[in-house]
Design a protein around this nucleic acid. Structure first.
Lengths: 341, 341
DNA sequence: GTTCAATTTTTACAGGCGTAAAATATCTAC
DNA sequence: GTAGATATTTTACGCCTGTAAAAATTGAAC
């Protein structure tokens, strides 16, 4: 340990008595050298605290070990959780995950894609902004980099993994109709394909059940969903213009804002005695269990989506030829009954 | 645009009639070539969609343009917001921010630091896990990379930027004592120096005001603060063992859980008629305004901390010699009066 | 001890760009 | 138009590792 640190593979070869190409082979894939050799190398690496130079490595490799992850909004708990799971899987598989967030802005999404592209990643997992994306930029990126799209099904890349909104919305609409007044649907102008699919699923399910769909679309843009839920909820309550006393929100974050609005107007939320409003969400965000009352919602299968996205990407990367067809995998939601509806 | 894309600087030199060294100079610093030349180059770059190869660039540069950002928990809204601001400043200054999250785990923090280090960044902004950090790993990192520490004042790096907990806690303790029963302090086993400083500040302030400090330390570890606040809050309420009906939480996330616990036990929170518990937090997390009731807290100056951290780092990077002394900058908190206390 | 296969070593070149030094071209001011 | 300062081109080498091909070594089984 007191030994002077070694900075290049050449030096390591000299001090360890092992040829440089063998060292190179080892760093590419430790199992490609004999066990005895492997141990000698590991000892030397530790003794001289050597680490390969990433830049030199990637300059000649056709395939880097970098995996790009791009999300629209890293502080959204759904994406935060997805990123955590995806990162873990990549690291365990010997890849280098690098995370970018668009922070809701097209400009930053483009920047992230451009940066990532110049890193020549082995592949990428992206959740596009959706409506806010510069479609051509995203498409250009996917031409160069094997890409799996998740969450928001923008029609690019080699595959998509997400939730079955038709099924999950159907589930909660059924539940709400079964247990009380049919819900209206609370949404803002859709920011991505998911939002559209959810609204359509709501309308379809209501019609199937013989009820009149009631969509309440409020104004507001950006990713500050709670804020929109709060201010628009306050407005709707003041105007008494809610078409139903049961409200299904397009996502949990909107519901968080709406619950706050109800509270601030002295309205009790829930299905118990004395409650005059039922509020439900969609996603089962990590903090949905901490609302007052706890939020009834539909859980997306975070784990399955993350896991499957990564598997799909690895399949594509390891396959020589690009997939002939874009695959789409949808996971089903599960009802999470709490107290808000 | 229909032109074939050019992949190396050499090719770009050929097709544009400009020498490679001049192009190289341009990419290092566009202002180092004549205006006429600059325009010719920009035109060619766009026409042939050329982008320099990052790996080749960084292999020879002593100083890369990479800035590393390491946070303990990317989905914590405080860090999410900090990251957003820091990234923006770095991009605007022509640097490449790369974000890593330890997801609360020492192993991942070490991995992030090691990865980052091999990227030979120009500098780094890190918020260490704190108690959960492998101090030696962090210190070793800071020996190699100019580093500014923020949020959690672990004694490494060239400087620290954070909040003045003594002042901010003093502010809210004063407020709470002035307006009602003196608060007890609700915390979990401290995960970082901030938590310790806040508790100490609470104790000091209470003593100054002539009150007996009452610290309620609950068990629970990890970064699931809301969960801890909820379960431990439920327990304390059931046991009737809260020493005061005014509770100052070590941070907002704990308060979110505690408010949920109060709600679930039918306890009204706030200072109005009929309320029997006052709850306050610290940080002014983005979602604190959506709790029921809205959370009274102390706001950290996110913007100042982010801005100043970056400035400090840039100063160090541009200065030839490393700073002789580790600088510490603290920003003051401001009281945010809402309805929970 | 021999043989064959699997490893490792030797040798050599490539990758894309930074950068230094000397020669040449361009611009500005007079 | 000319000198002097400033930019650009030419030429050449270095950075650190990947990788290919041929030669040499090692290992296990007989």
């Amino acid at each position: 340990m007191a030994t002077h640190r070694v900075k290049t593979m050449m030096e390591l070869a000299k001090v360890s008595g092992i040829s440089r190409p063998t060292l190179s082979k080892y760093f590419n894939d430790p199992s490609s050298v004999r066990v005895s050799m492997r141990q000698k190398i590991q000892t030397a690496v530790e003794k001289y605290d050597y680490r390969p130079n990433i830049f030199a490595i990637n300059q000649n490799r056709k395939l880097t070990k970098t995996i790009g992850i791009v999300v629209p909004y890293s502080s959204d708990p759904f994406f935060a959780e997805m990123v955590r799971m995806i990162e873990r899987r990549c690291i365990d598989a010997g890849f280098w995950p690098i995370v970018f967030s668009a922070h809701g802005q097209q400009e930053l999404e483009n920047y992230a894609l451009a940066t990532l592209q110049s890193l020549r990643p082995a592949g990428a997992l992206i959740a596009p902004l959706g409506k806010g994306s510069d479609f051509e930029s995203v498409e250009r990126f996917t031409k160069d980099v094997p890409t799996i799209v998740f969450d928001s099904n923008v029609a690019v890349g080699q595959g998509f993994v997400g939730s079955n909104n038709r099924q999950s919305i159907g589930l909660i609409v059924n539940y709400l109709c079964r247990t009380g007044e049919p819900p209206c649907f609370f949404e803002m102008a859709p920011v991505n394909p998911n939002a559209n699919k959810r609204r359509d699923a709501y309308v379809k399910t209501m019609e199937e059940l013989g009820h009149e769909p009631m969509v309440v679309q409020v104004s507001g843009s950006g990713w500050g969903f709670e804020e929109i839920g709060l201010t628009e909820g306050n407005r709707l309550i003041a105007e008494r213009s809610l078409p139903s006393e049961t409200i299904l929100c397009s996502n949990d974050r909107l519901a968080v804002g709406l619950i706050a609005a109800a509270y601030q107007n002295g309205i009790q939320v829930g299905f118990k005695e004395g409650c005059s409003l039922r509020i439900a969400g969609h996603d089962d965000h990590p903090w949905s269990q901490f609302t007052c009352p706890p939020l009834t919602t539909v859980a997306q299968d975070y784990h399955a989506i993350a896991e499957h996205s990564v598997e799909l990407l690895f399949d594509i990367i390891s396959a020589k030829a690009p997939a002939k067809e874009r695959t789409e995998v949808l996971f089903e939601g599960t009802l999470v009954m709490r107290e808000s509806a």
